[in-house]
């Protein structure tokens, strides 16, 4: 199976790493021979139809910062569209940055791949949160697959879990902590009694929160995941503008300590239920499934037959997120055997 990877940041590099780690295992276990035929970043691309060396890709990116420096097969200033046009591949791995204004350029990359009858695996929330139906329909029309497990909760299994493991059940509602950065900040505020501003600053220094933390702390990132879950698992036709969003930037130590006196914690919770689509700070009982610390993500699915089912996992991280992408690749491969 030939892969074209657009974007070579934390997730793209994670994919190269797990492919390098698991290449032999994939062959032995599934008879799956994975080849990376193209990788792009903002400098350009590396393209080789017989397969690039994942370790060399990683080394070049680390040493020079530019994938276009790949020996012999590096090309500078080539657009992603040209790459998609030119390269021989079976499956697009779309891992460019999330854009929540129009989902671009990822949306165009994905649609182009579909039109060329290629499958797509992505971790990119933008196009899914803004144009879910359009993408799903295009994939269907072109008879190809779109998989995006990594886009919600990184390594926490939820989308494929609901579709493949609980197909007997109707999912009535989903409640979850869907953003690791805010969970980390709120957990530390509760433990240490420091202010929101102080913990945010430290999280930024540690690389857990981004320099511009707005998407995380204002709840937009979690809201994108709410939209993806609602569309994918609960068959709703909604986009980002349908979600009521309140972030955590106004949460005070006073509120956290009042909650603690009652045996409660404050967490940023995404809710998808019959008449509600929202992200907001909520009170959760200490000791309940939502009382997870650090950057963990958690979600409880209320089902008609199995009652509550809860999943927990690492919501972000290079290798963790890549694990979900590799699982999607394997599942596409298996579906074609």
């Amino acid at each position: 199976m030939k892969l074209c990877i657009l974007g070579f940041g934390a997730v793209g590099r994670g994919v190269a790493k797990v492919i390098s780690m698991k290449k032999e295992e994939m062959k032995e276990k599934y008879g799956l021979d994975l080849k990376i035929t193209a990788v792009t970043d903002t400098s350009g691309a590396a393209i080789y139809d017989e397969g690039l060396d994942p370790n060399l890709l990683l080394k070049i990116k680390e040493d020079t910062g530019k994938i276009s420096n790949y020996p012999e097969y590096g090309i500078s200033k080539i657009s992603n569209m040209e790459v998609l046009h030119k390269v021989d591949f079976d499956c697009l791995i779309e891992v460019t940055p999330t854009d929540i204004e129009n989902g671009e350029p990822a949306k165009s990359h994905i649609l182009k791949a579909f039109n060329d009858k290629k499958d797509v695996v992505t971790s990119n929330k933008g196009p899914l949160a803004l144009s879910f139906r359009e993408l799903a329909e295009s994939a269907k029309e072109n008879n190809v697959q779109l998989k995006y497990e990594a886009s919600v909760g990184g390594a926490m299994p939820i989308l494929n879990f609901a579709h493949d493991t609980l197909p007997s059940c109707n999912i009535k509602s989903i409640f979850g902590i869907l953003n690791g950065t805010t969970n980390y900040i709120l957990s530390r505020m509760a433990k240490e009694g420091s202010s929101y501003e102080q913990i945010l600053k430290e999280s930024q220094e540690m690389g857990i929160a981004e320099t511009n933390p707005a998407q995380d702390v204002e709840g937009t990132d979690a809201a994108c995941k709410v939209v993806i879950l609602a569309n994918s698992i609960m068959n709703r036709d909604v986009t980002l503008k349908d979600v009521e969003i309140v972030g955590i930037s106004k949460i005070t130590q006073e509120a956290i300590s009042l909650a603690r006196n009652e045996g409660y914690l404050i967490k940023l919770i995404g809710e998808i239920s019959e008449d509600t689509l929202e992200v907001s700070p909520r009170l959760v009982r200490e000791g309940s499934p939502f009382a997870v610390d650090g950057t963990l993500n958690v979600a409880t699915l209320k089902t008609d037959l199995a009652e509550d089912v809860t999943v927990v996992g690492k919501g972000a991280g290079s290798i963790e997120t890549a694990s979900a992408i590799l699982s999607d690749i394997i599942s596409i491969y298996k579906s074609k055997e």
Partner: peptide
């Protein structure tokens, strides 16, 4: 005008 934090 309050920020409301309800139970889950």
């Amino acid at each position: 005008g309050f920020l409301v934090i309800n139970e889950v």
